[in-house]
Simulated assay, not measured.
Amino acid sequence: MGAGIKEIKNRINSVQSTQQITKAMELVASSKMRKAKDRALASRPYFNTMYETVKDIATNTRGVRDVFLKQREVKNRCYIVIAGDRGLAGGYNSNIFKLTTAHMDGRQEKVIALGKKSVEFFSKKGYDLLVSQDNVENCDYEKTLEIANTAMDLYKKGEVDEVYISYTEFVSPLVQRPKLIKILPLVFEKDDTEVKSKEEGRKARVQYLPSPEAVLSYIIPKYVSGIIYDGVIESFASEQSARRNAMKSASDNADEMLSTLELSYNRARQSSITQEITEIVGGVEALK
């Protein structure tokens, strides 16, 4: 019985030590998540403005031509895959890898990997890694601009015919959604905003100087790098949220395990005390 009590006590100590680690990681992830969430929310207006500007030029300007607007036969693709720097974040990393590889449909496409886990995954699988960026947290706008220029050069040279980005969209601290979008060539579909504008009044046309093509050639690199940078920020916020949720769940499970173990310990201890009392009483009765 003494061995059983000691074993339960050792398990309680082990679970308590693990719980201290998970709670500490939860606090760190919560702190980083709040800062990353603010960055993600602050970057969205910039991205939306860039998107609307490029879309307006591409869809509402007649005769505009640009190499990034021209679609061609798809032979090779490039995927910019943003994952985490560390694990212990639930299904955060595996979800983005499943989404990306499913879209590749078994082909060994070119990959630009951002995040240590992304680099490890695609290098082990034998993919053609064009760029490897181990640290998502320190991936600033200048680095994303370099990545955007690399992807655009590949597209202009004809080495790839489509460029996609895979990242995790930050919806809320409890919800993160893996997402894959095509960034090259630029494809925009007209929505019903023109119909609404006709009902409200004729929409004023914007005149782009010196020409729509010049404005487009200037703004497209910033637009593509903006998408990548937004993906980095959204992914980092999602990673911290996923890790926070995973560590909170682990801490809650540890609480339940401790309750069960403490109950078992008390029962075993009570049983041991009862047995000792019974032995003492039995010895006293034998002496009479």
Rank of each mutant, 00 (worst) to 15 (best):
274 T>V: 10
115 G>Y: 04
226 G>H: 01
182 K>D: 01
86 R>W: 10
45 P>H: 10
274 T>F: 08
286 A>D: 13
52 E>R: 15
259 S>L: 08
179 K>R: 11
111 V>I: 11
132 S>A: 13
227 I>V: 12
10 N>C: 07
47 F>L: 15
265 Y>F: 12
269 R>Y: 09
47 F>K: 06
152 M>Y: 01
239 E>F: 15
72 R>I: 10
246 A>N: 04
22 T>V: 11
211 S>M: 05
187 V>F: 09
83 A>T: 08
6 K>V: 10
90 G>V: 04
197 S>Q: 05
124 K>Y: 06
172 S>L: 09
120 E>A: 00
3 A>S: 14
187 V>D: 10
238 S>P: 05
154 L>C: 04
203 K>F: 11
217 S>D: 15
24 A>C: 02
151 A>V: 06
6 K>G: 08
10 N>Y: 10
160 V>K: 05
269 R>I: 07
169 E>C: 02
154 L>Y: 12
115 G>T: 04
118 S>Q: 03
94 S>P: 04
18 T>D: 15
94 S>H: 00
196 K>A: 14
90 G>S: 00
148 A>K: 05
188 F>W: 00
179 K>H: 05
121 F>N: 10
267 R>P: 03
167 Y>D: 03
37 K>M: 12
56 D>Y: 10
19 Q>R: 13
121 F>P: 00
121 F>C: 07
228 I>H: 04
71 Q>H: 11
152 M>F: 03
184 L>P: 01
257 M>N: 05
120 E>H: 01
234 E>K: 07
136 V>T: 05
197 S>C: 06
39 R>V: 03
62 R>F: 06
151 A>C: 07
256 E>V: 07
122 F>C: 02
210 P>G: 06
61 T>M: 11
146 E>N: 01
176 Q>E: 09
178 P>I: 10
56 D>K: 12
213 E>W: 08
68 F>A: 04
185 P>D: 09
94 S>C: 05
44 R>S: 07
33 M>S: 12
47 F>M: 14
156 K>P: 00
123 S>C: 01
262 E>I: 06
31 S>I: 07
203 K>S: 08
19 Q>W: 06
13 N>G: 06
242 A>M: 09
49 T>R: 12
130 L>V: 13
